[in-house]
Amino acid sequence: MANGIVDKVKEQATSIWGKVHGSQVAESILRPGSPFKKGYSDTPRNRSYVIMNNVLYHLHPVKVKRHGVRLSYTLCLGGISFFLFILLTITGIFLMFYYAPTAEAAYVDVEALSTSVAFGSLVRNMHRWGAHLMVLSVFLHMSRVFYHGAYKPPREFNWVVGVILLLLTLLLSFTGYLLPWDQLALWAVTVGTNMAGFVPVFGDQVKFALLGSVEVTGDTILRWYVLHVLAFPFIIVIFMAVHFWRVRKDGGISGPL
């Protein structure tokens, strides 16, 4: 009896799948060579088309040097930094649904994540620890690149882009640190921005621009929120695009030592 129902469901599913798969709509979405296409066969030509006929071609060539896919060379650290960035974007969007960047609401909203939002504390924890991990993986990536001498010609400029990515990663992390608006946030940011006050000549102006005020207040939350969720992500994505493009144009991952 139960088996009969299972079989019926299976039959139905297969027939619906049969109609969808190979339909004009599916065919128009999937480009030639896509492994999801009806009648896909694993041939060298199709393996090329998976990349070449696909948006992935913006990121990867069809073939790469064998050692470039070796885990033991890159340790995947650049890729891990990128993946963490994606994870932070996804979890961050979730957090934005429940957070208002004002002195009155910020702390209460973050507190409510762990009391009255489904998966709220899990997502907040992932965002927090993911951010720390990203800072770590970017540092490790930089060290790996240095010890391989991978900044040498023709990759000098991509190293410079990398330094900018490191700065942006730190700025993203630090602007996010203020947002929970607890004692940790307020005083860490006070220490950090006091330093900016020592910039020669323009110290006070720089500090005011950073804080939107003479000290850390609700105005600072709004300012850092906008930087954290919009400005810095926008800028870092542009630099990442240049970074990945240059990895490819500079001849792929640097050769084996």
């Binding site: 899990l122 924890n125 965002h127 004692q183 940790l184 850390v216």
Partner: peptide
């Protein structure tokens, strides 16, 4: 994320300076 909770101290209070004041680890 499952085993460790992100910290959340008391609400920001400009009148109470914690000792020590610490920046994030990086």
């Amino acid at each position: 994320a499952i085993f460790f909770d992100a910290p959340l101290r008391e609400i920001a209070n400009p009148a109470v300076t914690p000792n020590p004041e610490k920046a994030p680890w990086y």
